[in-house]
């Protein structure tokens, strides 16, 4: 058997899109297979090699008591633990439950809510165990994934920038859609990594890589309001894939409707 490091891929509450990003590395998959032994990856192979594992990629957030247990076992069985995607790094789109009453959802959706064991918050992996590297995005960027795997194999620090998406717009020569077209864009407060994908096809950034290292969300929200974006739309812009991060959670909450019978309940999350 080879001396190659073992790789495991784990899934928690998620859509599998980030794991698919690994499978989508078509040109590099063979090179990767020569360098690592894929020991546990139910999405791709039925073969299972028992742990411990040198590198674990963890997709998904923690939303059930059982998963809160399981992540501890995964941590214990892993050398380096890399979280992949918005769910694993921030709680994902399912963290919208953090702003609402989960027991109410249960009673509306399920005939027998008593059979459902779920937590009232969706939390990132880092809220439960120590994480070595985080890869943002919904889904993650394949170049960043390969960069992290390459860096870990070679024992060097991965290059994962924490500055804003705007840097990537300017580096690739994309004209700013916010300034030139008035398109609402979260790029100035969102971490780079996607290569400024959305602005390059004339869309505003949706913030799927989560907050940058210096996210001045209040100033961006003021700019959006000045562009004519209504208050509730500002709330929804910040309340998507990374609503569970502190900067986006706080900013979205600041733009909640404050009057009317349907006002969203204000819930505080502490982590």
């Amino acid at each position: 058997m080879s001396e190659n490091p073992t790789l495991a891929v784990w899934k928690f509450a998620s859509c599998d899109g980030c794991q698919l990003t690994l499978l989508n590395c078509e040109d590099e998959l063979l090179a990767l297979a020569e360098r690592v032994e894929v020991a546990y990856f139910p999405e791709a192979t039925g073969a299972v090699v028992s742990g411990p594992y040198d590198i674990s990629l963890v997709e998904g957030s923690i939303t059930t008591p059982a998963d809160a247990e399981r992540i501890q076992q995964v941590r214990a069985a892993s050398g380096l633990l890399v979280t992949i995607g918005a769910c694993a790094t921030s709680g994902g789109i399912q963290a919208l439950r953090n702003f609402a009453d989960v027991s109410e959802f249960l009673s509306v959706v399920y005939a027998h809510p008593a059979y459902v064991a779920t937590l009232d918050r969706s939390t990132p992996i880092s809220a439960h165990v120590t994480v070595d590297v985080q890869l943002r995005g919904c889904p993650i960027d394949r170049h960043q994934l390969l960069e992290v795997l390459g860096a870990l194999l070679q024992g060097r620090r991965p290059r994962i920038p924490t500055f804003s998406v705007c840097v990537e717009c300017k580096q690739r020569g994309t004209t700013c859609v916010a300034v030139a077209h008035g398109t609402p864009c979260l790029g100035p407060v969102t971490q780079a990594g996607c290569g400024a994908l959305c602005p390059s096809v004339d869309r505003g950034c949706y913030g799927c890589f989560g907050p940058s290292d210096t996210p001045n969300t209040a100033s961006l929200a003021a700019t959006l309001r000045a562009q004519g974006v209504p208050e509730d739309a500002v709330m929804r812009l910040f309340r998507t894939f990374n609503a569970g991060t502190e900067p986006f959670r706080l900013e979205s909450t600041a733009h909640e409707p404050t009057t009317g019978a349907n006002a969203a309940p204000r819930t505080e999350v502490t982590s």
């Binding site: 804003s164 700013c176 100035p188 001045n216 100033s219």
Partner: peptide, 13 residues
């Protein structure tokens, strides 16, 4: 600093 987004656009352009 209250207004600046630290987005780097000014230096890039």
């Amino acid at each position: 600093a209250e207004r600046c987004l630290a987005c780097t656009n000014c230096t890039m352009v």
